[in-house]
Design a protein around this nucleic acid. Structure first.
Lengths: 191, 191
DNA sequence: TATATGATGGGACAAATGTCCTTTTTAGTG
DNA sequence: CACTAAAAAGGACATTTGTCCCATCATATA
């Protein structure tokens, strides 16, 4: 549910400690919107600490959360390859520390550091791999099953993430999520 | 709806014509399953002609179509980066021609041909970019709106792709799709 | 030709989910 | 502490979508 990429995190920290030119640390408070949908930026971020949500909002203000990003996950990288507007907003949930790098330096790294190149390639592939079954599952199963599944992969999800965000992640209304949670409680005695 | 990548198609054809070692042409008849979910393969395919569907099926046999792939789209590449099982099956819809390459050769190309490297990186990024708003939209809007949207981006979709596949692509039952199509007909006079 | 098979279309009802609204709880702030 | 705002919980009802059928039509094939 909260995605991580420790291999990438480790490598970026190593580059940073090695004094890599153009890579610098940034910190953000909670509920801070770092990237807004449909804009242009020229920075890529690597999370070293904390959690963000990455979401799409439609014209009616509905939010649909794509992923929760944790340590080692990068964002802002898609726009390096197809020079278009961002498709997602990214907003911090907890306090967040990132290692940031400009598009130019990012491109340099890709060309000169084949290990980095490989890690990014793998990170992109993993994002694709991860998305497919998730959406498939959410479509095919009732809300209750989705909640159970979340609980399995991330037992404390209700403590860290707000109900609204969880609902937007599963793609249902808060009302429906509450209904599912209540029914689960009644069945199992305890959430 | 049917994704293409002409830039990649052109480049792969050029490599093939140039006698690139390890790149060979394959042809498949319609309804042929090229890749099956949860298996291992060591080949990457680039479509040069025809259409396939790429789908996940669950334990109840329900299919959820991830994408329809057309000219220039590649498949089987995710497993190069994370050496795991396939997550999707890929099955031809029309006759299909591909340029195929082993994992080993694919990796060689990635390392030695920086233009190719860049094209693959971009192709991965585009797959991510494309998936996000699609699933978001499908969740947020009723079936009818989804059908209208499909009709806009691909007017002839009912002629090329079966009802069942369209339903599985939108993530609904055939019954629901039919209902939506019927209501649209009644409203607009004509599908 | 006769028969099987699969795709399509739709009726009737059940179940899941959304909408709208109200109440309760929690957390923050003057 | 008192007050406000935001988050959480849930009642009542409407709508959407799914399930389970069955009928029809086209196509392939023995």
């Amino acid at each position: 549910m909260i995605r991580i990429n420790l291999e990438l995190a480790t490598y970026m920290k190593k580059l940073f400690k090695g004094g890599m030119h153009g890579l610098y640390e940034e910190k953000f408070g909670p509920k801070h919107k770092i990237i807004e949908q449909d804009r242009r930026y020229n920075k890529v971020y690597f999370i070293t600490q904390g959690i963000t949500k990455c979401y799409i909002s439609d014209e009616n203000g509905k939010e649909f959360i794509q992923e929760f990003l944790g340590e080692g996950m990068e964002f802002g990288e898609l726009e390096v390859f197809s020079k278009k507007h961002t498709i997602c907003s990214v907003e911090t949930i907890t306090e967040l520390t990132t290692l940031s790098i400009s598009h130019t330096c990012f491109n340099n790294l890709l060309e000169t550091d084949s290990h980095f190149n490989r890690l990014i390639m793998k990170a992109l592939a993993d994002k694709i791999r991860y998305k497919a079954p998730r959406h498939s599952y959410q479509h095919s199963y009732p809300i209750e099953d989705n909640v159970i599944r979340l609980k399995k992969i991330f037992p404390k999800f209700t403590e860290v993430i707000s109900k609204k965000d969880i609902a937007n992640y599963i793609g249902v209304t808060t009302r429906s999520l509450n209904r599912a949670l209540k029914e689960l409680k009644e069945k199992n005695g305890e959430l």
